[in-house]
Nucleic acid binder design. Structure first.
Length: 268
DNA sequence: CCAGACGTTGTT
DNA sequence: GTCTGG
DNA sequence: CCAGACGTTGTT
DNA sequence: GTCTGG
């Protein structure tokens, strides 16, 4: 999954339209935008998130650092950028944060998922990977997550987080059709404005939260998705000087792919 | 009990 | 073509 | 995921 | 560090 967040836009929405002005811990990030990708070899990217404890936007590291000795934690962290919500309480890396109520919310403008058209069909040498921009009608939502602190090599306490996923709905399953190993198609949980307060309310225990996820995840009918130009570089997004390069993706445009006519007739 | 795992996804 | 390593 | 390798022997 | 599997 690729994730995108534009903080200046996000903060404007929060303050003016939603009347939910979270404090912003580092004002330097107010004007930043973020485009980040998750995989097992790229973690620690700093993204804006709100913890239930502080109720303020701050930069935290994407991919949860579990409470284990550093040599082990670093390895496990390769796979903690997401957390399967249905199984979270059974996982050593996540049950601690859950029991301590370390929930967070990650504001976002859109995410990308890739649709694969096999080379068999295109007749090409490689599969065709078409990125879809996915968001809600408001163009602004938030992803529920868990967070955990750790002490980095400089001895500083750093906060890290994971984004929760659930079984993928129809839209996600259709777009995200890459061949998989044995498991189901997943989607990152997206909450519209009306579920943010509940997620950041400490009266809800984990079982309540599982229900919140099922009930609050943005429905397919509320999703807006369309194919877009292929972003050729996403890696290293957290390098500050690359910020300008990514700004161009803020208005990432819908484009036509003739190859999609068979799989997405009339829906785009 | 001890040994071994600890995680998720599948463009970046 | 298929597996491994990053 | 993609990029890059695509191997053996002797020894643990 | 803590849990799971054998």
């Amino acid at each position: 999954m690729c994730y995108y967040s534009s903080m200046d836009y996000n903060a404007r929405v929060l303050e003016q339209e939603l009347r939910k002005p979270w404090k912003i811990k580092q004002d330097t990030m107010y004007q930043q935008s973020f485009l980040a990708a998750a995989n097992g070899y790229n973690y620690g990217v700093k993204l804006p998130a709100v913890t239930i404890q502080d109720q303020a936007i701050e930069l935290m590291e994407w991919s949860l650092y579990p409470g284990m000795p550093p040599d082990i934690a670093k390895k496990v962290r390769n796979g903690t950028y997401n957390c399967r919500s249905e199984e979270a309480t059974q996982k050593k890396s996540f049950k601690g944060p859950i029991n301590k109520g370390q929930f967070c919310l990650i504001p976002s403008s859109w995410i990308l998922e890739f649709h694969t058209i096999p080379k068999k069909i295109t007749g090409d040498k490689k599969d065709l990977k078409i990125p879809f921009r996915i968001t809600n009608k408001e163009g602004f939502f938030a992803i529920p997550g868990l967070w955990n602190p750790y002490k980095n090599e400089q001895g500083e306490i750093v906060r890290s987080f994971t984004m929760l996923t659930k079984h993928g709905g129809e839209v996600f399953s259709k777009i995200h059709n890459a061949p998989r190993f044995s498991r189901d198609c997943r989607q990152v949980v997206m909450f519209g404005r009306e579920y943010w307060d509940a997620w950041l309310d400490d009266k809800f225990l984990w079982d309540d939260r599982l229900e919140l996820i099922e009930e609050g995840v943005i429905k397919d009918e509320e999703l807006v998705f369309h194919p877009v130009r292929h972003p050729n570089k996403i890696r290293n997004i957290n390098i500050p000087e690359m910020k300008e390069d990514y700004r161009e993706y803020e208005g990432i445009d819908k484009i036509q792919y003739p190859e999609l006519l068979d799989s997405f007739p009339n829906t785009l």
